[in-house]
Nucleic acid binder design. Structure first.
Lengths: 211, 211
DNA sequence: ACCTGAACACCGTTCAAGT
DNA sequence: ACCTGAACACCGTTCAAGT
């Protein structure tokens, strides 16, 4: 005769997420999560292998939510405007879920198949914008699209994580700094997208400097 | 009659740093640190208030080391070249000390006066380069220098932390992507630095889009 | 199948006692 | 002043037992 289930995996993950958001990734115990869904800590182990797996599930939820918000933020028309709108949505997401954002980039997290694909998928809604910006109609130029994405995306992550950790200490408006950064990068990318030779020359130059 | 000291604060911090680099910020216990310097865990509390204070001391060491390496990487001549060289030094530092780098941007760290100033000082060696790049000889234009620094610096942090966490999954060379990002941003900044009106127009445009 | 209390091997930290 | 063992209140996790 099986014991009737008092809760569900979904409820457990939701409870854990709430605790993460309130007190951070280290701010809850298995006992806390269990109590939040009306069971005892050892019972969690019939559903999750260990604490890290619960955290990994919470992390995946955050990545999926970010993906939805980036997709929703995408506007029609000029690709640079669409990317700027998505950049603002990205920052807004991080500021709305500071603890969750920290979890998403925690190096100690588990490396699951599902987590890797959730993370990769989250930024997918921005790729058409980059393709339109730098490759024009040439949708097959995947390498150029990827290079462009890898300028703005790191800026976004770096800016918001520095902002969340309080690293901007020298004054000045951060909204303005963010807008300035996004505009500068998009202008730089648009320029390299419209002049292939300019871009080739610049890349060769960079390599010369590096080696 | 005092007990003779078996160790020093400096040795304790060095031992903790070694453990952090080997197993991460959560990978050592007070017992481990104490054993590494030949004492017992409770003795640490006559020197440090708690574990987080040891970690904070280790973190400060990393910030000071980064500052030294950025200062050393600075080259004479073209400011963009100097900044590119510092960008490479920044990335090399993060890849040489991945666990330490994670500690430096850990949101859970203590907020000490000394830590805040060590962090702020670490990026100071790049400021003259930004000033030369965007403000020309006008050393007093601090706001423009700061705006420029807040484009490249977040890119650097974002790129290396995404790289360390394994976030770049779509293939392509990361060395090339890094160089491309640095070159794109520096070109964008140099352009805004040489044409004040262009920059003013862009900033007003950004604000219009944001609000 | 799912839940439980008891137990295990840890943790950071406190404290009274030693020199 | 610095060090120590013992103790406290926790952890995550395991396990045998209950239904």
């Amino acid at each position: 005769m099986p014991s009737p289930a008092k809760t569900t995996d979904t409820q457990i993950i939701a409870a854990a997420r709430k605790l993460v958001e309130r007190r951070g990734r280290d701010g809850f115990s298995m006992k806390d999560v269990a109590a939040a869904v009306g069971i005892r800590a050892p019972s969690l182990y019939s559903r999750f292998a260990h604490r890290a797996q619960i955290l990994a599930s919470v992390e995946i939820e955050y990545w999926r939510q970010l993906e939805r918000e980036l997709a929703r933020a995408r506007t029609a028309g000029d690709p640079a405007d669409a990317l700027a709108a998505q950049a603002r949505a990205y920052r807004a997401f991080a500021k709305a879920h500071p603890q969750g954002y920290g979890l998403m980039f925690d190096a100690r997290a588990e490396r699951t198949e599902e987590g890797t694909s959730a993370r990769a998928g989250a930024l997918a809604p921005t790729l058409p914008g980059f393709a339109a910006l730098v490759a024009g109609g040439d949708a097959g130029d995947h390498a150029r699209t990827l290079l462009a994405a890898r300028v703005l995306t790191p800026f976004l992550h770096g800016f918001v994580s520095m902002e969340l950790v309080g690293a901007f200490r020298l004054g000045g408006g951060l909204d303005e700094a963010f807008e300035y950064g996004v505009a500068t990068i998009l202008a730089g990318l648009r320029e390299t997208g419209s002049h292939r030779t300019t871009r080739r020359r610049r890349r060769r130059h960079s390599r010369d400097v590096a080696h």
